[in-house]
Amino acid sequence: MKPGPHRLRFFRNNWPSDKGAWFPGEKVQFRQKALFEDFEDSSWMTLFLYGIKGEMPSPENAAMVEAIWSLTTSYPDPRLWNNRVASLAASTRSTGSLGIAAALAVTEAKVYGTRPVYLASRFLRETARREAAGEKLADIILPHLKKHRYLPGFGRPITSRDERIGPLMQRAEKLGAGEGEHLALMHRIMAILDGKRYRIKPNIAIYVAALLADLGYTPRQAYYIIVLAFATGMMPCYIDAGEKPEGCLFPLQCTDIRYEGHHKRRLSCA
């Protein structure tokens, strides 16, 4: 449909959808299924994944995604920048919904959180596509690294070692999810970097991206899956700050501000 107000006219009081609906007092349609009948015994994660992709995940796939949530994003530590927002909200006696919602929004960061997972997912998919089209893997990876000075899913703030990788991959092996083609591609990328003596190390985002790609999720779906994942670590942070005297989370003195701006001046001299 070309640009113009006729697009708005078409949708006036008209929202066709295959994603579902509430029939007040009666039932809920959830995509192509009936919520109360078809999901009576399902886990929340199964419903969540069905809502994203429109396909029922196998119990193993749902368990794998749940392991990603549990083991890679659930850190109850208020020093982490997104969690700190939840803690600050509790410290100032704001509400749990506001604190967690704001903290989740902040999780869409560049150096951690949802953006790296999306970028790593895209990077793996695009690299796989180019390699399948005949390009050599080293000729894809090394120029990218030279041009951008980073690879999506590699490198980490605070520490270069990612303690989440071992436990997550152990779980993946148990669930039979450790042998996929995107994981293999990731290992071949790491081998190229090691061979060239690059110091950058993979972080959990590239593993999550590879696992989700091997489960059949697109980069956009991988992003949707991870959007809520960090809430689990935030809630203890919120509760923790609420237990302490108000306003006492990481208080800063005036001298803790390292000012490096314009020297003092008066308005009349401006």
Binding site: Q253, C254, D256, I257, R258, Y259
Partner: peptide, 22 residues
């Protein structure tokens, strides 16, 4: 060891009786 925040916008001088109040 207390971390500090860098800024070119904002500078504060503390009240004599409270380092947490400007």
């Amino acid at each position: 060891q207390q971390d500090s925040i860098r800024t070119a916008i904002w500078h504060e001088e503390a009240e004599p009786d409270n380092p947490y109040a400007a």
